[in-house]
Amino acid sequence: MNKSSEFLINEYHRRKLNSPGLTNAQFADILGIPSSRLSDYINGRRIMTLPIAKQVVKGLNLDIVDDFEHLKTLIESDRNKRKTLLPETQLKEDEFSVICDWYHFAILALITTKNFRLDAHWIGERINIPVDVAAAAIERLVRLGLIEVNGGEVVATQKNLETTHNIPSESLRRSHKQSLVQVIDNLDRVPTDLRDVTSITFPMNRKKIPEAKRLIRNFRRKMAGLLGQGPKNEVYNLNVQLFPVTKVTK
């Protein structure tokens, strides 16, 4: 599946969560393109041009700078993929996708839960992503050696993902945005006894930021260790945000 196709499918699926009656034709109207062309983009028959990509980002009310740069990177990746099918090129694209899209790590975590099934329909239902996106993600994780299938048993290899190329900063920012959007999308769906969303605003000494990052990193690891004890039946995402409210000056 093309990277830009996954982008469109994910955006359509996310909007359908809030508007279950959303049709492909209506989504195409939001993007400002004919529904037949949307079908071509999603099915990989055509690759978006950059003017169309900018129009799509605008229609989706996404960030015209960061999100456009991310989509531009995906389109360039799709174009390069058509030029060469070398295995090393495929692996670099796989690494890029795993870093950028949250659901890859969610699948790796899901593997350790009770009654896991390596089935795209089951995985898509469990972490709320389209079936074809789930199938593409599974294939990607296998190619990278992050998942191994032995005699019907599926294991996450715990292999470290060492990227062989620079991940554009706008793509990493998009990954962070995805985590924040998930919180917003699920705020009204997840009961309060199954989540915790709190905040605190305080004055601080900016010179303490490196120490604060270290404490937050240690806290994340300890929390993951605590919640990972015993039988695992769900996958959670812990977000800790430390950012300025005041206008930052150097």
Rank of each mutant, 00 (worst) to 15 (best):
K92T: 15
P203E: 00
G228I: 04
L180D: 04
P130L: 01
V65C: 11
L62V: 07
P51A: 06
A156C: 12
E95H: 03
N18I: 12
T164Q: 08
E6Q: 02
K16H: 01
D66R: 13
R82F: 03
W102R: 14
L31W: 01
K177F: 13
A109W: 03
K207Y: 11
Q90T: 15
P20E: 00
P210T: 05
S199L: 12
P20F: 00
L242R: 08
K222Q: 14
A106V: 12
A135L: 11
E95L: 09
K213F: 09
P34N: 10
I167S: 01
N218Y: 01
F7W: 08
A135G: 07
N128R: 02
I184G: 05
L50T: 13
D101Q: 10
V131K: 00
L50Y: 12
D66C: 08
A25D: 05
I147G: 01
T249A: 13
F68L: 03
S4A: 14
D193F: 13
E125H: 13
N218S: 10
L108I: 07
L227H: 13
Q229S: 03
V131C: 02
N115R: 01
R206P: 09
T249S: 12
Q178P: 00
M48I: 10
D40Y: 08
Q55F: 10
K250G: 08
Q158A: 15
L86C: 01
